[in-house]
Every structure is written in structure tokens, then in C-alpha cells.
């Protein structure tokens, strides 16, 4: 077991100490563990299953059912592509495809360098700006594939600038 995995196990155990071994505690436990770790690693899910005395698949089943839970660590920047009705009509799925292609990940995943995580959202309430992508909690309007490239370029430039300054 790697150091990171052992750490995850430890932290999960610490949280589990506060709960009873009732199956009904599964969702509150998952919320607390995700609150602490940012996501639900494999080791954490196995630990929880053992604690509650249920098959590990049951934990996995609940984690994959609710949008709230994530199986991948959050990236430094979060990308949420709106697929609400208005954004769908304006080609939100094309925007999603553009993000997927540029970041080389699928929805619900994080880039290997943990810079970006990508997911979808139902509606963020600014349909006038459709298609919308929420980048680091800031809704960006009219995000067509070219704007996807623009946003990623600005992140790249910012990072390069920071790199130069710290040198």
C-alpha cells in the first residue's frame, strides 16, 4: 500500500469513529469522507463497506448513483458544462465534446496532472448566455469550442507567468 493510500485509510477510520454501524449512515459517512478528502478513493469505500458490514459494491452503487459523489480527485480548476434545456438547444453537448477532446478526459474525470476536472451540470440559471460553462465557479457565456481553446490558453499563459515570477 502506498503512503497516500494508508493516509486515506487513516482519515476514513477517524471519520468512521463518529458513526454507528448502521446501513442508514452510509450517505452521511460518504458526505463527511468526501468533505475531508475531496473525493471517494477506492480504499475509503472499502473501509466504509467493512465498517458497515455491507458488500463493497453497495457503497460503489450509492456513490455512482448520486451526482454529489465523485470517484476522482478534484482538479485545481473545475469545469462544469451546462446541459440544461437552453444550453442543450444551443449545442452544450458540442461544448462538452470540445472540453473532453482538449483535456483528453471524460465527464466525471480529472486530468492526470490534476489541473482540471470536468463534469456536467443541469442548469446554472443564466440561460441567456447559453451555452454556458462554469469555470472555477464563474459562469462563462457563449462557450463554443473556440472559446474552450481561449479559456485553456488563458490558464496556460497565467501558469507560465506565475512560473516565470517564481523563478
Amino acid at each position: 500500500m502506498t503512503k497516500e493510500q494508508a493516509e486515506v485509510k487513516q482519515q476514513t477510520k477517524r471519520i468512521l469513529n463518529r458513526f454507528g454501524r448502521k446501513r442508514g449512515n452510509l450517505v452521511p459517512i460518504l458526505q463527511k469522507v468526501q468533505g475531508k478528502l475531496g473525493y471517494l478513493p477506492r480504499e475509503a469505500m472499502l473501509e466504509i463497506a467493512e465498517f458497515l458490514g455491507i458488500p463493497a459494491i453497495d457503497v460503489y452503487s450509492v456513490v455512482t448513483f448520486y451526482n454529489q459523489f465523485r470517484l476522482n480527485p478534484p482538479g485545481k480548476h473545475s469545469i462544469r458544462v451546462c446541459l440544461g434545456t437552453a444550453c442543450h438547444m444551443k449545442g452544450g453537448y458540442i461544448t462538452l465534446d470540445a472540453w473532453k477532446r482538449r483535456l483528453c478526459i471524460d465527464r466525471g474525470q480529472t486530468t492526470p496532472d490534476r489541473e482540471f476536472d470536468l463534469d456536467i451540470v443541469a442548469c446554472v440559471g443564466c440561460c441567456v448566455m447559453a451555452p454556458v460553462s462554469v469555470v472555477d465557479d464563474k459562469p462563462q457565456g457563449k462557450v463554443e469550442p473556440t472559446k474552450v481553446d481561449g479559456i485553456l490558453l488563458s490558464f496556460k499563459l497565467k501558469k507560465e507567468k506565475q512560473g516565470k515570477e517564481s523563478q
Binding site: I54, P55, A56, I57, D58, Y60, S61, T64, F65
Partner: peptide, 10 residues
């Protein structure tokens, strides 16, 4: 009593 299989996703 094994519990290998289960449902996932939605």
C-alpha cells in the same frame, strides 16, 4: 452471501 455483483450508475 458473496455480494460480488450489484447495480451502479443511474
Amino acid at each position: 452471501g458473496i455480494g460480488t455483483l450489484g447495480f451502479a450508475h443511474r
